[in-house]
Every structure is written in C-alpha cells, then in structure tokens.
C-alpha cells in the first residue's frame, strides 16, 4: 500500500489491518499524553481545494498525534486563486519534501493524477462525486465497534447516492469486508451505472429498514445539483427521511449513521439525531483514529 486513492483498492486483509491498527490507536485518545513519536520528522500536506471542516481537522489532528509536521494548504488564499494548476502546486509541494499529501478536490480523479506527480503517499480525502475512502473506513470501524462484526451485517445507505462519494466508497469497502449493502434512493438520485455496483438497490425505505442493522443517511447535496431531482424537500423527507417512527421499525440494536454535515429535518429528524442510537459524534472521534492508522501504515514504514 503506497497511496490510498479508492477503498476499492483495499484487500480484505489490508482493510482489516487498518481497522485493527485504528482500534489500538483509539486508546491513545484516552491517555494523558495523546501523542506518539512515530512520524517525527515527516511532513504531511493537507491540500484542500474544497471546503471541509471535519475531514481537514481530523487529518490534521491525526498527523499531529503521530508527531508529523502538518502544512495546511487551502485553495483560497494560495497561488491556486492566482491560476496555478494542480500539477504545479504538486511539484511545489514535492520540492518542499512532502512525505504525504492529503488531497480533497472537486474533480473526480484528482488524487489519482496527483499520485503520478509526487513521490510521497497520496491520501484521497474526497474527490468530486467519486470516493472518500477514509470516511468509509471510519464508518466500517464505527459499525464494527458498535455491532461487534462486519461479516453479514446489513447496511442501508439512504439518500443522494448520485452525488455521494461516501456511498461509493462505503459500498466497495463494506462489500470487501463481507457486509451486505442496499442503496435506497429515489430513481433520480441513483447513478446511471448503479447496476454494476456490488450491492442491491431499492426505491422504498420502509421495505428496507426492518431488514437493516445500520441505516446510513446521506445529505442531499444541493451544492452539486444543477437541476431538480425531486419535487420538494418536504416530499423527499417524507419518503426518505428517518424519523422516530421509522427508527422503531428497525431491529432493536440497529444504529443510525451520518457522515455529516447533517441537515436536521430533511434526512434525519432531530429526535433521531439526538437518540443514543445515532453514532454521528462517535464517527467523528473514530475518524481521528482511523486516519492515524492510515497515516501510520502509509508513512510509518520504509
């Protein structure tokens, strides 16, 4: 493993190693000294072409807990706003000796291109509507610690699948790890190629929920929508939103997940969002551990 570009690239053993490593590193967060010397002297560049709070701070904290030097680089207020291309920015970072580049970009495939230009490891922190592998890893980690297993787990991914990189990464990773994924969305919010994905598809949330151990609710990504995909937000929420009544139809130990940012009242009702079965804050905490594990496994060795 040199780069982390797609969760589809991970074998079952590699993915399990990342989750096991994350489980050990999670204990570091409980200590008084929350720092390990492992990546001392290594430089990690956070290259963010798209707005992000959660992922960028999570990567930054993860790298700092491993004692790496972190450079935050956002497109706003850098040479990118003056017209510098991705390649030239990459070569600049290369010249500065970056050992790892964490990139978020609005164009699908940007991390893949970048991996050909730099010597260091490239970590995909979300590219367009393509993939977000560390999110899938932290989701898998959260499911494993809540449910105790991944093999045979039934996961419903609900909402805007077309514009979601989280959905694709999760389908690929969870399938590799032995879980069964069902995508639930109105036909307009499913990508054209969805029949080639290793999962099932349904248009009816109420049919799927009673048979699911995990409901992963996705945000409707208005910022990526250039046309109208459903009649009204209210109708979408009625058909595909998770409220207390629907949660009651799920198995008693089922959990509700959300990659954030969450829009209360649309995909998840406030009551469900505040219930102990909703794992949103747990996911954020696990995100740091999982990203520490990925940084360690990619940059820690020879």
């Amino acid at each position: 493993m040199r780069h982390l570009l797609s969760s589809g690239d991970l074998t079952r053993d590699e993915a399990t190693l990342i989750l096991d490593t994350a489980a050990e590193l999670a204990r570091v967060s409980d200590r008084s000294v929350k720092k390990l010397p492992t990546l001392r002297g290594r430089t990690v560049v956070n290259l963010f072409y798209e707005d992000s709070t959660r992922t960028r701070t999570s990567f930054e904290l993860a790298a700092k807990r491993l004692s790496a030097d972190v450079i935050n680089f956002s497109a706003k207020g850098s040479s990118v706003s003056k017209g510098e291309s991705l390649k030239d920015t990459a070569l600049t970072l290369q010249a500065m000796g970056a050992d790892g580049v964490v990139i978020r970009h609005s164009a699908s495939g940007a991390p893949h291109r970048l991996s050909h230009w730099v010597d260091g490891s490239v970590l995909n922190a979300g590219d367009g509507t393509h993939e977000h592998p560390t999110q899938a890893l932290l989701d898998a980690f959260t499911m494993r610690s809540r449910m105790g297993r991944l093999e045979g787990l039934r996961v419903a991914v609900v909402g805007d699948i077309t514009h979601s990189r989280v959905a694709r990464s999760n389908v690929l990773l969870l399938t590799t790890l032995g879980a069964h994924v069902t995508l639930v969305a109105p036909p307009t919010l499913l990508p054209v190629s969805v029949h080639t994905w290793p999962c099932e598809v349904s248009y009816h949330l109420d049919d799927v929920l009673p048979k699911s151990d995990v409901a992963m609710m996705l945000r409707v990504q208005n910022e990526r929508m250039h046309e109208s995909y459903f009649p009204s937000v209210r109708e979408y929420s009625r058909n595909y939103g998770l409220d207390a009544e629907r949660l009651a139809c799920m198995p008693p130990d089922a959990v509700v997940m959300h990659p954030g940012p969450m829009v209360r009242g649309v995909e998840v009702s406030a009551e469900v969002a505040d219930s102990p079965r909703c794992t949103v804050t747990e996911q954020v905490a696990n995100g740091v551990s999982v990203r520490m594990a990925v940084l360690y496994l990619l940059l820690g060795g020879s």
């Binding site: 190693l17 096991d20 490593t21 390990l36 492992t38 491993l66 360690y296 820690g300 060795g301 020879s302």
Partner: peptide
Amino acid sequence: TMYRDDLRLAPARALGRT
C-alpha cells in the same frame, strides 16, 4: 511498535496491545 527506532527500515508493522 510506535516507539521503535527501526520503523523506517521495514514496512509498517501491525500493532500489539497496550
């Protein structure tokens, strides 16, 4: 493992339990 001085001489190792 995370405190070893030879980490960079080999591929990243799996962690043990603390």
